[in-house]
Amino acid sequence: MESEMITNLHYVDILNEWDPFHLVNGNYDTEIADTIQAIHELDHMDDLAERIQSIYEFSFEKTIPIDNCLQVAKQLLVIKDNDSCTI
Rank of each mutant, 00 (worst) to 15 (best):
F60H: 08
V24I: 13
N27S: 09
C69A: 10
T30M: 05
L23G: 12
L15Y: 02
I36H: 04
Q71R: 02
K80W: 06
E4F: 09
D29F: 07
V72L: 03
T35Q: 03
I6N: 10
Q75Y: 07
S84T: 13
I64G: 03
L70Y: 13
P20Q: 03
F60V: 04
A73F: 02
I87E: 15
D13G: 03
L23K: 14
F58R: 12
N27I: 05
I36P: 01
I39T: 08
M5L: 15
F21A: 09
L42D: 08
I36S: 08
V24P: 00
M45E: 15
D19A: 02
Q37F: 14
I52K: 01
L9F: 13
I14K: 04
N82W: 09
C69E: 00
M1N: 11
V72W: 00
R51L: 03
E61D: 13
K80L: 07
W18Q: 03
S84R: 11
W18R: 03
I87M: 12
E61K: 08
I32F: 04
E31A: 08
D46I: 06
V12W: 06
E50I: 11
D81S: 10
S3R: 12
F58A: 14
Y28M: 00
H40Y: 07
I55N: 09
A33F: 06
E17C: 13
L76N: 03
E61T: 05
C69V: 05
N82T: 07
V12E: 12
E2I: 07
H40T: 14
D29K: 10
L42R: 07
A33R: 05
N25D: 10
T7K: 11
A73D: 10
S84N: 14
S59E: 03
L15H: 02
L15V: 05
N68Q: 10
C85N: 13
L77E: 01
A73I: 07
N27Y: 12
D19Q: 09
L48E: 01
K62D: 10
P65V: 01
D47I: 02
A33E: 11
N25F: 14
H44F: 11
Q71N: 15
F60M: 03
E17R: 14
